[in-house]
Design a protein around this nucleic acid. Sequence first.
DNA 1: AAAACCACCAACCGCCATTTA
DNA 2: ATAAATGGCGGTTGGTGGTTT
Length: 252
Amino acid sequence: MVRTPCCEKMGLKKGPWTPEEDHILVSYVQRYGHENWRALPKLAGLLRCGKSCRLRWTNYLRPDIKRGNFSKEEEEAIIKLHQVLGNRWSTIATRLPGRTDNEIKNFWNTHLKKKINQNVAHPETTGHSSDEPPKWGITYTMNSRPVNCSSEQYLRSISHIIPNSTQSAQPLEQETAMNASSKFLEMKGKQLSISSAMTSNFQGLIDPRIGFSYPQLGSKVEHSDGGNSNISDDHMNFWYNVFIKAGESQNS
DNA sequence: AAAACCACCAACCGCCATTTA
DNA sequence: ATAAATGGCGGTTGGTGGTTT
């Protein structure tokens, strides 16, 4: 089906919002909420489309939005999250209270991207490039989307929990770096999927270094070796924590 | 002083996923 | 089961203000 553009109707205003419009929108949302963005502008008396109202509210007028420059901590968090999640700005935004996906996206495109690209020119200070998937890395499937991480991150994150070929949860810690590298080389350039076998072996495992276990499988989780991969939020959080911790141990 | 260039960011656009009728 | 409506997301654009030439 083809959707009609939301601002197709003539007479709807576009462009920057005026203080008066802001006031009308804020007053209306505070009083009546925003259950139906489509209907809101008409009810509130705004010559805007619902989409424009929603964007204005979520990106600018919401009372819980943090203003001002990004702190060093926020900047580092964005860089780490982007390594794990890629351009999934809304997901990244959920981990930075008071920041919107649009704000983070702009900050990335105007500041961090350049900064990281500069660092790539000096590889002693960083791992891999930012925007592009790492040339030397792993892609795994998360929520049906490919997620990239660097080889270092990946090796660190799996070195102690990846099951061996007999599907026992034997740690790899005893393995030499050479063996680990060999394993990685085998996977280089291939799509790594979170398989049922791996997942079942991860279940209940608690790594003392990271202090959390692989989440129990929920009913909605399917695995890529059986077709689709749909990892729940718990699973995403697990992988996020693994990669963040891996990054921390790498830095220390 | 003015033109050219650059950086920033609010807002728009098109697409996809989910919900509703 | 299906079409339509709606919400949400990420990519991109364009206006604005600052800086450089």
